[in-house]
Amino acid sequence: MKTEADNKTCPSSTCKEGALLLGVVQGDNTVALLTGTPLTVDKAFAEKAHEDGDPERRFRFANKCVQTGCKQWTGHSCGVITRLHEMNERIEADAQLKPCAIRNTCRWYAQEGDSACTICTYVVTNNLEEV
């Protein structure tokens, strides 16, 4: 039987067909969230976005939280937002949250509440140096 916990959305997923385009990474490495009707990644977008390198450096994607199917899952929660929250505990949640297309089902929001939304816009899914 499916529970509500099974239907959460990962806000830092990879670029593949069917994912939602959540935001774009700006020049200062913050993320501008796209609001309104969620834009679904199609094959053409995925192919074009990969032509210029890792799309996860330039965009943020959302997709179904697969829990145990993800290496970030700790067994009961998402380890990414837990760790980010611990390391950014001095950051206070924004008084007014920015609009977000997935907040209602967001795994990070469900775990950490408003402060997750504040941290979220500073997260680039892939910020590893290119070699």
């Binding site: 760790r83 980010l84 390391m87 001095r90 500073y122 680039v124 910020n127």
Partner: peptide, 17 residues
């Protein structure tokens, strides 16, 4: 309006202030 914040690598996804 924030503390000093720098993205660093941690399995590709991390930020630290």
């Amino acid at each position: 309006g924030r503390t000093f914040h720098i993205p660093i690598d941690w399995i590709g996804i991390i930020a630290r202030d």
